Simulated assay, not measured.
Amino acid sequence: MTIPYHLFETAIGWIGIAWSERGLTRVQLPERDRAATERRLLATMSRISQSGEPSQQTARELPANIVAAVDEITRYAAGEIVDFSDIKVDLAGINDFRLAIYDAARKLGFGETTTYGELAQRAGHTGLARETGQALGSNPVPIVVPCHRILAAGNKIGGFSAPGGSATKEKLLTMEGVRVGPPPSAQASFGF
């Protein structure tokens, strides 16, 4: 099995993506440089493989749907209002609970936030805020499934599993015009 992937430079740093015939399977937010982003992307691709070690390959020619996804992510990183609902994702192997959470998150528009508890309710899983946070923490396609738009109770920033943690989450929200609670103390690993 060969998993194609591609790295591209954006205003917020190098982003990596991987895909199948059905859609994006992975979005890797920026690390400190291209090489670090590629290493993290390949490591996560290896961990999610269900049939042994996949063969990863940098794509020489991108399919039209992937060119469109790269364009939309690049424009988003430059601060443009982008709606990712047209980007197909391949979430094969993910359980029904997480699929429901990701689907509910994808319905949030640019600059729209909600809490983990509210998102759980929207997804039909009232009372499962903690589990919702765990599902979002393992979101394989951040930005496209906008897990950064989900806040802790009281509209506090909450956690974020991407490089830079909560500081990165806050910067993504700031790009969308959203201001929340006191700023996190950690610095994001990419400077935008």
Rank of each mutant, 00 (worst) to 15 (best):
Y5R: 09
F8I: 07
A11I: 00
W14Q: 06
I15N: 08
A18Q: 13
W19M: 01
R22I: 00
R22V: 00
L24W: 06
R26F: 02
R34G: 05
A35K: 14
A36G: 05
T37C: 04
T37R: 01
E38G: 00
A43G: 08
A43C: 01
M45Y: 03
R47H: 14
G52H: 11
G52Y: 13
L62V: 01
P63T: 11
I66A: 03
I66Y: 02
A68H: 15
A69C: 06
V70K: 12
D71M: 02
T74N: 10
T74P: 05
Y76I: 05
A78I: 08
V82M: 04
S85C: 04
I87L: 14
A92G: 07
A92D: 15
I94C: 01
A100H: 06
A100F: 04
I101W: 13
R106M: 13
K107Y: 02
E112K: 09
E112C: 00
T114M: 12
Y116L: 02
A120W: 12
R122W: 12
R122C: 00
R122H: 13
A123R: 11
G124R: 01
E131A: 08
P140Q: 13
V141N: 04
V141T: 14
H148I: 03
R149V: 05
L151W: 14
A152S: 10
G154A: 03
G154T: 07
P163M: 10
A167M: 10
K169Q: 06
E170P: 00
K171E: 15
M175T: 06
V178L: 05
V180H: 09
S189H: 10
F192Q: 12
F192N: 13
